[in-house]
């Protein structure tokens, strides 16, 4: 494990920011930390970076401190430095071996702005400069706090590709509010709320474990007779018609539905356009866990 915390706690006076958090991040994986504001994500990342001290518990990192890099959600630099100087300074401080500052700036799309002072950079440019300054140190463990929050769709796409490309080379822990991003690039997720880790594991397990067995049916014919027939079945637990001729059918088990649903629709004389199992998405599960 690249990161392992045991009973990690952090309090600011009476306020408990983290309570008994045990996370495990496998080496080379991309770990997504999701949770609402105030869940403790930033505090956890700051502790892992060594910039805050835990009140209790233990942190074990397999990377040496100088190979751990943290990118805050809104990176800021001395405004009188140029982009090149920021990345060059980051390389020097990280004791990077043969750093290619120019390439890092090019990868971040900042070649043209490299000699401009960063005081004139937009928020998106600062975010990309922060990523370049983080990557130039060739870190083993990257801690990214909302890395795509200030970027436009194209910039976000680049960051997500970059994170996904690091899988196997470096270990990435990144927090995000954008569940789609987490879904796309993470192997493992940790769901936090009010300083507590509610779930940790693979996305598949999270979604499967939380999925309510249900089907979505789209009809061409009126839904009334089908709804009546469905409500008489003991394996159907609920039927709703959120839109005309579109049914959401909750069932006791997927196996029951697979055996009987198609036959029942046929017997009811329904004209069926589509019939799909309703998988729970990350947003549903996130809201269910954190609400």
């Amino acid at each position: 494990m690249m990161v392992r915390t045991t009973g990690l706690s952090k309090s600011y006076g009476p306020h408990v920011a983290l309570s008994d958090v045990d996370i495990e991040v496998p080496r080379g994986s991309v770990y997504g930390l999701v949770g609402p504001n105030g869940a403790g994500k930033t505090t956890l990342l700051m502790i892992l970076a060594g910039l805050r001290h835990p009140t209790g518990g233990q942190v074990r990192l397999e990377a040496p401190p100088r190979r751990v890099a943290l990118l805050p959600d809104t990176p800021q630099f001395d405004p009188w430095l140029t982009g090149f100087e920021v990345v060059s300074l980051a390389a020097h401080l990280s004791e990077a071996r043969s750093p290619d500052v120019g390439r890092m700036l090019a990868d971040a799309g900042l070649s043209d702005a490299a000699q401009r002072r960063v005081g004139g950079y937009s928020r998106g440019m600062l975010q990309r400069l922060g990523i370049a300054a983080t990557m130039v140190g060739q870190p083993e463990l990257l801690l990214l706090d909302e890395p795509a929050s200030a970027l436009d769709p194209a910039g976000r796409r680049e960051v997500l590709d970059l994170i996904a490309g690091l899988r196997g080379e470096a270990t990435v822990v990144f927090s995000s509010h954008i569940l789609g991003d987490v879904h796309e690039v993470c192997d493992t997720v940790g769901v936090m709320r009010a300083g507590t880790l509610l779930y940790q594991g693979t996305l598949e397990n999270l979604l499967v474990g939380r999925a309510v067995p249900a089907y979505r049916v789209h009809l061409r014919s009126p839904a009334g007779p089908v709804v009546e027939a469905l409500r008489r079945q003991e394996w159907v637990t609920a039927v709703a018609e959120p839109l005309p001729r579109r049914l959401h059918i909750k069932v006791r088990s997927l196996a029951d539905a697979e055996r009987q649903l198609a036959a029942l629709l046929g017997e009811s004389g329904a004209l069926v356009v589509s019939l799909t199992p309703d998988a729970a998405d990350l947003e549903d599960v996130f809201l269910e866990l954190t609400s």
Partner: peptide, 11 residues
Amino acid sequence: EMAVFLRSRIT
């Protein structure tokens, strides 16, 4: 945010 740049790179 500016302090993070220095403090996270220099132990």
